[in-house]
Design a protein around this nucleic acid. Sequence first.
DNA 1: TTGTATGCGTTATCAG
DNA 2: CTGATAACGCATACAA
Lengths: 345, 345
Amino acid sequence: MKFEAVTIKDIAKALGLSTSTVSRALRDSYEISPETKKIVLEYAQNNNYRPNPIALSLKEKRSRSIGIIVCEIANSFFSQIINGIESIAYDKGYNVIISQSHESYDREVINVQYLASRSIDGLLVSVSSETQDLEHLKNLHERGFPIVFFDRIVEEMETHKVIVDNFKGAYDATEHLIKSGYKHIAALAGSEFLSITKERLGGYRKALEDHNMEYNEAYTKHCLHGGMLYDEVEHALNDLLELKIKPDAIIASADKLTTNCLSYLKKRKIKVPDEIGLIGFSNLDLTELLSPSLSVVRQPAFEMGEISTELLIQLIESKRPIRDFERRILPPELLIRESTDKNAK
Amino acid sequence: MKFEAVTIKDIAKALGLSTSTVSRALRDSYEISPETKKIVLEYAQNNNYRPNPIALSLKEKRSRSIGIIVCEIANSFFSQIINGIESIAYDKGYNVIISQSHESYDREVINVQYLASRSIDGLLVSVSSETQDLEHLKNLHERGFPIVFFDRIVEEMETHKVIVDNFKGAYDATEHLIKSGYKHIAALAGSEFLSITKERLGGYRKALEDHNMEYNEAYTKHCLHGGMLYDEVEHALNDLLELKIKPDAIIASADKLTTNCLSYLKKRKIKVPDEIGLIGFSNLDLTELLSPSLSVVRQPAFEMGEISTELLIQLIESKRPIRDFERRILPPELLIRESTDKNAK
DNA sequence: TTGTATGCGTTATCAG
DNA sequence: CTGATAACGCATACAA
């Protein structure tokens, strides 16, 4: 007994009608008599008829599914975003296909091509931390394919973009450390190719400047893989702690950087905040558990997913190309806990 | 400039050939002359021709994509499984569509129907913790639709199943607590509808029995949502700690139960292992960070995803139905850290 | 009110 | 070696 779905043709044959009559009856067209409708609908119901979405896609030249490119789903920030994306997508009858780049440029290119060739109607993209060349996306975009960037956006392309106010997040975090009395604040940053890294480091520098604190280039460390690999974080922190004047506080500017930084400090038995102050970007709901008194910058991830998806679907469903693309900037949240309050020590 | 992909028909028209010739040239058929092939291939290359997978699906009655049903992707265990699934799926040219039930039965039914109607070729399922009625899956299965269960399997259906040796995992964990000197071991368990819950509780009881320890029903607490909600864990633990003879150790039998249990204990300022022993199932790579000396049962999640996918694809691609379904049981790993060693206290 | 014919992009089966 | 045609499941313009 092979899996064979019942089609309109089957119904037509069984009821002695034409396929078009059945099709119209199922779509509740005004042209069909109530009796015929009733018979058809009943038969369809009983035989569990489901329209074949592939045939529909072929006809309508749209698949009602959107693709997502993220680095990792095993990252609380991104899994929250995906939940936001899903909630809107399902609402509007869209399916969602997730793919992970694992922070690899090659993998990202493969995934984009794969998704595009799978006839998705649009793409939500947060680029990998290795990505510099954008041909794989520009190519699609130039042909009018709907793309919305979120979080890790790309300046060279004109389309909708949704980000958090990274500058402000980092500024506030750094300022908080300064006000807590720290004098030598280091920045643990992600890949230098990423927009978010630049924005966050910008906020960090501006805060130092505004409070008349010296900016020391040696205090900024980049991790190409955004902290995904423990080794790169370890390496960066080793470098920082070997400096003549060791930093007395660190701002970790991404989820994975924060957790791996905590792991490192715990491994080296360096107490937070007694020996070193720490503040980090983190959307992990276990932050409090990880480090009872760690202050964090939290991003409105779910909302970000929702907004990105709304924009994308709007882009997909508008017949003519939209000219003025939006750039939505969401406010981050600074969750203060006692750790970084040096005065309280 | 609308997004319009180039089709075989376009190529045919441009080169003054027929669509069938172009089609065959692209598939490198022996019937086509080398020169014609060369011209066609060149044109296709230059105009970035990509076969339309939807048209292909319609023709071949297969979409080369598989669906996944899990409760949450924001759960280290499941995100590791998904990575395993992806690695095999991409290898074999399959696309993967993930959907989350968020532990809701209704949501699961909707997702299954949605995925099935989206013409996926097969389904990888780990049921929600609310699921009792299986009609939505039986229905598909009876019609010959390929389904593989993993982790949270279902006894009533005859198909491939991939699980971890949950009995052994819980047995070993409980035995470890016993050998560490704990006398009153409570079990924090997931939904009683789930196979894994039954198996784990079985291992727990057997370990108590084998060591001549009394089994007290009041020491077993269920959380319907598998610990996804903090409140249910809090409620269960409150109950346990209000007993006349309070348990001196807890085995938490799922990822979320473990982390939320830790959160609770931290919140109530109950020290582990000084005041209460704890061992838990956990695939979180931050476990060590969460609680420096927590022993855990770790499941081979990635491998589980790989095996499930291999079986599913085998099922999809075998022409005749496979009669003897496999049941793969993978070994869990008991990672011992000092916490539970009461002797060391 | 219902039926017939066509097309979406592709491949397979014929016929040249 | 190449071309015409049908078919996959559905919707719709056009006929009746």
